[in-house]
Amino acid sequence: MIRSPIRAALVAATVIASAPLALAQATTSAGEAALADGTPIKGDAVYKAFNEKAGIDRLTDDFVHRITTDPRIAARFQGANLTRLTFELKAQFCYLLNGPCTYAGKDMKTAHQGMGLRNRDFNALAEDMQKSMDAEHVPFWAQNQLMAKLAPMQHAVVTK
């Protein structure tokens, strides 16, 4: 399913924290959207730079494919409901990018409790996110805005 089509785009730029979300949602129970511990980016310039909702959806499909096939962290997603994961991540990225999306769910800390995630897991996810943003042709400055939102989630996500 993940290998499915939507791989049109590929790769992107400077992140760090989508990892927590993805890992969290993939492995927690039903994969409820974990509420991003952060406020949306102000204005609409960054949202537009991500090619709005369609771009975020493409990026997320690409991203989920990457993280679930990245040998460094793929095992973390074994058995996860990837359809659900993709759905939740789209909502979360869209929310953080100040798009017309909402979601509710656990906070980052709760969502990742007991997973034993390490910095290397978090960073691997961040690098996959960079590639996905590159693939979506998101400019570097805009990538950095999302990365700056995601990076601090490390404090709640990484427990080892």
């Binding site: 492995t27 129970s29 973390r76 058995g79 996860a80 409790q113 007991g114 997973m115 390490r118």
Partner: peptide, 15 residues
């Protein structure tokens, strides 16, 4: 294998 049905913090095997 147990994780998906296992509920919340039933994480996949820690590293």
């Amino acid at each position: 294998g147990a994780a998906p049905s296992g509920g919340t913090a039933a994480t996949p095997s820690p590293d």
